[in-house]
Design a protein around this nucleic acid. Sequence first.
DNA 1: GAGTGTGAAGCAGTTCACAGCG
DNA 2: CGCTGTGAACTGCTTCACACTC
Lengths: 212, 212
Amino acid sequence: MNEFTNRVPDATIRRLSLYLRFLEDFERSGVTSVASGALAERGGTTAAQVRKDLSYLGSFGKRGLGYSVAELTGVLRGVLGLDTVWRVALLGAGRIGTALFEYEPFRARGFNITTVIDNDPRKVGTCLGDITIRGEDELEQALCQESIDLVIVAVPVPVAQALVERVVAVGVKAILNYAPTQLRLPDDVALRNVSMLVELEGLSYSLARSQR
Amino acid sequence: MNEFTNRVPDATIRRLSLYLRFLEDFERSGVTSVASGALAERGGTTAAQVRKDLSYLGSFGKRGLGYSVAELTGVLRGVLGLDTVWRVALLGAGRIGTALFEYEPFRARGFNITTVIDNDPRKVGTCLGDITIRGEDELEQALCQESIDLVIVAVPVPVAQALVERVVAVGVKAILNYAPTQLRLPDDVALRNVSMLVELEGLSYSLARSQR
DNA sequence: GAGTGTGAAGCAGTTCACAGCG
DNA sequence: CGCTGTGAACTGCTTCACACTC
């Protein structure tokens, strides 16, 4: 199957991330070959689902045997764009922003935070790790200078929308939003929301349901 | 329509959380009535979707007019179980755990973190806000004593699975997982994963695609 | 024999379109 | 007349089942 003809479902992309993590585990423990069933068990899905997911990318399993861990790891890294080092800017150096900045797995995966912006004058000029925090007024300049690919939004709700509009205006095409608000963006900008509240409320719903 | 007969899709539950946030905004700004189209615009969805979502819960719109902001807010709070104060335990007082603990919107929504557990002996006995951090050995005792409803997991991957098994064993039925690993749990336990990596990799995929 | 790759069937969530009510 | 509520059509993801290959 041709790897360019087909649009890969979003749900599949999420699972590919999971599979990659499992494959890296297998690689570390010296396993060289893995069947769809093994990946499925780890990922809480079915073997058929795993095979279908992987079939979107091409076909590199060996029948009767499974997939080469090394090969599949490489393919998934490539598809997910993890063979590129992306330049990332963090907007907001509050509690959450700081925790994200110091989150090791980001760097390990090739997400390189090179710019940190905050509008608190007491923070501007101080350092987060090896990065000097810059003021909001330098936003456009910083994004262009550092040729930022991706922006993480960790600012309070009231300022989020205005800020991302400026971000989009200078051509950034991917935004990871931690602010508990729905951002309105042009269609060609990829947006993902990470909302602790939405997830918690989903659990709250389950609890409330089961309690009758 | 009867509010107990039907299973509400997961995607709908997520959107209900969003709608509730918008309704609270409207309430603050003194708007008393809102049409499905207005909610849709804010939430990046369609009017039909909003109406369908709300129809799972019953029918309390006024034709030709829209929905009463106050009434709908109340209904959504009820459905999402936000009229109950849930007792929450936080496992892991590292960077992410601490940031979550201090995240105000949790408390505002009735999620009351009454217990914090960490296995670092230097942290045990110290305080996070007004809560004294307890050791991992006190886990079961603490969960029962405090009659915890919901557990937030913010511990390193290698210890996460073993820990949640102990959590589930004492009867906790809802887990919010921040560890970048897939937890295996009994079916009757509600689980939500918040994975920064999965979302970032989704964006990375989009960037890689658009760059050809 | 074991396990992949994939059309076809099944199912769930979304969108449509319109009757019905305020 | 405006906007809700909802069956019906549609779209797209998931599951099945089996031919195929190592």
